[in-house]
């Protein structure tokens, strides 16, 4: 029982991180219809920037802030200079450019920081929690607290503010949204800023949780998060978040606890295939 709970909590942490990565992808797909594979590149760059700033300044807060700002700028640049000019072409054109961009960003990290694995080797500065016999490490507490805060803030923005209303309107009908006075370009910028800043946080959290930052760290998340937005229902942000949390828990429990002899990363794709076969609109999609 003790192991089960501990593994569930680990799974929830992994799922939270998946959700943070997938959020940006779901937001971008919702508004532009582009499969933003390069999002995982932003996540890798964010991890490296966070690592670099932390190594120089020793301040984790600084590392996260600089990572968020830098990744936001990077995201907006990608949107303005790569996706936007390509939107008039069929969807596979921005997709191919996004994959190319992702590979380029990986190689760029390898060139700048070298191929070796960098380690953060620190714990998140959060308290250790104890319930009966169960101990939640500071890093785990930190991951829960940070991701819960991000989910709450994002939920508040999208459902309770005028900006969120404009974001939802734009993602449903960009032309009509602009005809009621919503500047679609600005909304798209904001979405890339939010998504990329969150990706940076995810990169840094992964770097700390697994204690490794390396050039190819974005590869598996890139494809896994694609599978997740399909499972969650393309364009559904809540669906993607819930799918990500479930996947994290399922991966950890089935492979780590129940010892099912499968490669851990296969699970996301099995889920995607199952969803495509039986429920193509996704678990939380709105009709086919």
């Amino acid at each position: 029982m003790y192991l089960f709970i501990e593994q569930s909590l680990n799974g929830l942490a992994v799922g939270s991180i998946y959700a943070l990565i997938t959020l940006g992808l779901a937001l971008v797909y919702g508004i532009l219809g582009v499969l933003h594979v390069a999002h995982a590149g932003i996540y890798t760059v964010g991890a490296y920037i966070g690592y670099g700033v932390y190594a120089c300044t020793g301040s984790l807060v600084m590392a996260i802030l600089v990572g968020m700002v830098a990744c936001s700028c990077l995201g907006v640049l990608i949107e303005r200079f790569i996706y936007f000019p390509l939107l008039k072409f069929p969807p596979y054109v921005p997709l191919i450019s996004s994959i190319a961009l992702f590979m380029g960003m990986e190689e760029f990290c390898r060139l700048v920081a070298g191929p070796s694995v960098r380690t953060f080797s620190l714990e998140l500065p959060f308290p250790e929690l104890k319930f009966l016999d169960i101990v939640i490490s500071p890093t785990l507490t930190g991951i829960f607290a940070i991701s819960a805060t991000i989910f709450l803030v994002l939920w508040f923005i999208t459902t309770k503010t005028e900006l969120g209303l404009a974001m939802r309107a734009t993602s449903q009908d960009m032309d009509i949204a602009s005809s009621v006075g919503i500047d679609g370009h600005r909304i798209i910028d904001i979405i890339f800023i939010l998504g990329s800043a969150i990706a940076a946080v995810a990169g840094i959290l992964v770097g700390i949780y697994y204690n490794e930052v390396y050039p190819a760290m974005g590869t598996v998340p890139a494809y896994k998060s694609l599978a997740l937005i399909v499972v969650g229902g393309l364009g559904s942000v809540q669906g993607a978040v819930i799918a990500a949390l479930l996947l994290g828990i399922a991966e950890t429990l089935l492979i780590g606890y129940a010892n099912i002899p499968l490669p851990r990363d296969a699970l996301a794709f099995i889920a995607m295939i199952a969803v495509l076969l039986w429920r193509p609109q996704g678990l939380f999609g709105k009709g086919a």
Partner: peptide
């Protein structure tokens, strides 16, 4: 617009609010 083109996944009230975006 032709065929109304209301925002399908916003409520009626939210659709009305989009009409005064930036003018509240």
């Amino acid at each position: 617009p032709e065929r109304a083109r209301v925002f399908p996944r916003l409520t009626v009230y939210e659709n009305l609010l989009t009409g005064i975006y930036g003018l509240r």
